[in-house]
């Protein structure tokens, strides 16, 4: 009997079908990978752009910190194309690759108060608003100095056209300022 008559074609076919299904699922996974936004909504980088050309792009939405976004299978230099839900609507556009990370933000102290790693400098991860408020309470000097930073951030925001105290400020006008600055200085190629 010839060998091909003995060969388990049916098993091979079944194996190929399984492989194809696995591959298809894997490809879908890659295309639809979920990433999280690691910058604040008051960062100009949180604005989703219609294209990667700084001068020609238009804002299509804004992201907030820790928001999940879906990665689409397109990159252009430092930018990636994403799909995200903004104000209840689904938008697609471009953001900088570096503003996204695979895991959600922890946003909490990662060492115990006594210093689980037993020294002060290790305490840096976990630095957040709560600890900053603790520093204000502990040190009047630090409280005064931090107040200066607060004032500076608020006034700077006002000058650039956004409310630094708002939870989700609109940063699109700030990007437009940068474009206008470049255009007025004739810096654009």
């Amino acid at each position: 009997m010839q060998w091909w008559k003995k060969f388990p074609w049916q098993r091979l076919l079944a194996l190929l079908v399984v492989l194809a299904v696995v591959l298809a699922v894997a490809m879908t996974q890659v295309r639809g990978d979920k990433m999280y936004v690691k910058v604040d909504s008051s960062s100009p980088d949180a604005v989703v752009q219609s294209s990667t050309d700084f001068f020609d792009s238009k804002p299509v939405g804004k992201l907030v910190s820790n928001q999940p976004v879906e990665m689409l299978d397109e990159t252009d230099g430092e930018f990636v194309k994403i799909r995200a839900t903004v104000d209840g609507k689904e938008v697609e556009g471009w953001v900088k690759k570096i503003i996204l990370q695979k895991k959600p933000l922890e946003n909490k102290p990662r060492v115990s108060e006594s210093g689980a790693v037993e020294n002060a400098s290790f305490a840096a991860p976990g630095f957040n608003e709560e600890l900053e408020n603790g520093m204000r309470a502990d040190s009047p000097e630090m409280a005064t100095a931090l107040k200066r930073i607060d004032d500076f951030e608020v006034k700077r925001g006002k000058l650039l056209g956004f409310d630094a105290k708002a939870e989700e400020p609109d940063m699109a006008p700030v990007l437009q300022r940068y474009r206008d600055f470049a255009a007025a200085g004739q810096l654009k190629d």
């Binding site: 690691k38 604040d40 933000l105 922890e106 790693v117 608003e129 900053e132 630090m142 100095a145 931090l146």
Partner: peptide, 21 residues
């Protein structure tokens, strides 16, 4: 302890800036 999230760097930056100011 080596990996700092942007928000952590920001709050550290505020503290350092406070001393500079």
């Amino acid at each position: 302890v080596d990996k700092y999230e942007p928000s952590e760097q920001y709050y550290l930056g505020r503290g350092v800036s406070a001393v500079i100011l």
